[in-house]
Design a protein around this nucleic acid. Structure first.
Length: 271
DNA sequence: CAATTGACCTGCAGGC
DNA sequence: TGCCTGCAGGTCAATT
């Protein structure tokens, strides 16, 4: 599922093809995609120029000449596929944006959880205010600030976008394995050394996954802007590896369901 | 304040 | 072959 490394990989593939270009048309085939948008994208975006495509957490933010922002979230299965106008994508898109150089960007989204919005400056600021520091660069001090004095579990805090930006279920499990920490430890129980280890592990997992172009799991859901999968799945230690051996100590990886999501961990070396 | 649950959504795997 | 159930999980809202 798209988490920080996947969203950043999509951004890097898309940015050189869209930055500096004017939007010709925005065709929304599935109105649910833009349901939460305060301004109707199909009406306000054409004619505007995309100056910069940046990322905060799992959000993609297209800064427009007008001061508005084109805001995208891929959620579970969203893809942004760049192509040429007139060549349809292999699956029907929920929306298609065309640019002044005949580039088409298709929002394909099998599970239909993704969204597209147009926000003004205040709306964008409010959105960004609800996103914690990006996981790929977070330091020990920032992580301590995010987690300190909280009774909740460290995994729940790591995946809370308001506390840390960009970590989802998969990379939370991987980062906690790397730091040898149980996902169910209360934040308040973490020592300074454990916080330092966790911050280091979070950054390392994010950067290694980014270097591999993200993770395409067996469901084949994630691909980059050119339709190519990422290769980090071969480096996964615990995610979707229940029943297999822990790469560090050989103990069988467990899958534990808490709430709506599954957590994978090594019961011996994560304490 | 935090944990929990349901809603949203669809393709696929596994059981029978 | 076909039906049913569970599973994948990011985010938000409502509830405990």
């Amino acid at each position: 599922m798209p988490e920080l490394p996947e969203v950043e990989t999509v951004r890097r593939g898309l940015a050189p093809r869209v930055e500096g270009h004017r939007i010709d048309t925005v065709v929304v085939y599935d109105p649910r995609l833009v349901m939460r948008s305060p301004l109707p994208p199909a009406e306000v975006l054409p004619g505007d120029r995309l100056e910069r495509l940046r990322r905060r957490g799992k959000w993609l933010l297209g800064e427009l000449e007008s001061g508005l922002t084109l805001v995208l979230h891929l959620r579970m299965s969203g893809r942004l596929l760049a192509g040429d106008v007139g060549r349809p994508p292999e699956r029907p898109p929920r929306a298609t944006i065309t640019l002044d150089d005949a580039t088409a960007v298709h929002f394909v989204d099998q599970r239909r959880f993704g969204e597209l919005m147009t926000l003004d400056a205040d709306g964008t600021a409010a959105l960004e205010a609800r996103i914690g520091p990006d996981a790929d660069t977070i330091g020990t001090a920032a992580l301590r600030t995010a987690l300190q004095r909280r009774a909740r579990t460290v995994k729940s805090a790591l995946t809370d976008q308001a506390l840390v930006g960009g970590i989802g279920n998969m990379y939370a499990d991987e980062a906690l394995w790397g730091a040898r920490l149980s996902p169910f430890r209360p934040c308040s129980s973490l020592s300074d050394a454990e916080l330092r280890s966790l911050a280091r592990s979070v950054r390392k997992v994010m950067r290694r996954a980014l270097a591999a172009g993200g993770t395409s799991t067996r469901d084949g859901m994630y691909v980059d802007a050119d339709g190519n999968p990422g290769w980090f799945a071969v480096e996964l230690a615990v995610y979707q590896r229940e029943g297999l051996a822990c790469p560090r100590c050989g103990t069988t990886i467990e899958r534990v369901v808490r709430g709506a999501t599954a957590t994978r961990l090594c019961p011996s070396c994560q304490t």
